[in-house]
């Protein structure tokens, strides 16, 4: 890139600012990558501010001009034209909450993701403890099965799962949203890897103190595994909060059971065209909790990824 730097210039380890073509190239690639990833978010947030006309004509910059525009739906209801003039940003966000019961969907999302996570932990911790710390016949085989299950894509078993739930009469219920995810092989794997690093002495000390094996799991292993659990929580919550596929399959009729991603469909108009502004406002509201959580737990999240050595 530049002939001012020597090819073997050790810029990485040197303090101070020093031009390095390798570092520059690295950052250029990373910046390009982050732009590609951020662009859809930019569009989403921007559209949630704009009026339909601005969206269609692609004008108005990031915030839009915020000029009043006519709400056609309001006019159709036969109200006075003057009452139906709205500011785009207010219109978009009020419609997001008004046209569909978004709060209900957010509540469903919380119920589902929290129950999934709690049950996953209840299952994964004892499993991981047994796989990491107890010696029993066939342990390696069981762990092999866990690894094997990591390879099975969800979509491949979706149909049989659906049929099973349907036969049990569980479709259109919270149970249908939660039960298939309660055993997380990824969680078992992640926690097992973490438990392998916990010294055996600690467990032996607990046994000498008089704890039962279950008591060891909840009173000793759980508190020491908090960093790993946080990482797993992020994986689990993100995956199930954002999941569109599975709720779409098992929630067929009852709209009150919709999760936030399903709620987005409400704005996919059939007759009156797509309503992009409120739709993007909904999308922004749905991803906001995750982004906030990520910013708070960023360090843990990265720890978790390095912990699992995955993704």
């Amino acid at each position: 890139m530049s002939d001012t730097t020597l090819p073997h210039s050790p810029a990485v380890s040197m303090p101070g600012i020093r031009f390095s073509s390798a570092e520059t190239l690295k950052h250029a690639v990373l910046i390009l990558g982050s732009l590609i990833v951020l662009l859809p978010f930019y569009v989403m947030v921007s559209y949630s501010f704009k009026s339909p006309a601005e969206i269609m004509q692609n004008t108005g910059g990031f915030f839009g001009a915020q000029e009043l525009f006519r709400d056609d739906y309001c006019v159709k209801l036969g109200r006075d034209l003057a009452d139906c003039m709205v500011t785009p940003v207010i219109y978009n966000y009020t419609t997001a909450f008004g046209k569909a019961p978004l709060l209900r969907y957010l509540f469903n999302g919380i119920v589902v993701t929290v129950s999934i996570f709690v049950i996953q932990v209840l299952v994964a911790l004892p499993c991981a403890y047994a796989l990491a710390k107890l010696r029993f016949w066939g342990r390696e085989a069981v762990f092999g099965l866990v690894l094997f299950c990591l390879l099975i894509p969800v979509h491949a078993i979706a149909l049989p799962l659906y049929i099973m739930l349907a036969k049990l009469g569980l479709t259109n219920s919270y149970a249908a949203l939660v039960i298939p995810w309660t055993i997380s092989v990824f969680g078992i794997f992640l926690m097992r890897q973490f438990f392998m690093t916990v010294p055996d002495d600690l467990i032996d000390a607990a046994r000498m103190d008089g704890m039962s094996e279950f008591s060891i799991i909840w009173n000793v292993m759980l508190p020491t595994a908090i960093p790993a659990l946080m990482a797993f929580a992020i994986f689990s919550v993100v995956a199930h909060w954002n999941d569109y596929f599975w709720p779409r399959i098992v929630i067929t009729g009852d709209r009150s059971l919709f999760t936030p991603p399903l709620g987005l469909r409400e704005f996919k108009g059939d007759a009156d065209g797509d309503n992009f502004g409120p739709m993007m406002a909904t999308a922004t509201i749905i991803v906001a909790p995750l982004i906030v959580a990520f910013l708070i737990a960023q360090r843990r999240f990265i720890e978790g990824i390095t912990l699992s050595g995955m993704k």
Partner: peptide, 11 residues
Amino acid sequence: MVFQSYALYPH
């Protein structure tokens, strides 16, 4: 028992 790594509960 006293262990080499002390094995105190870290939390």
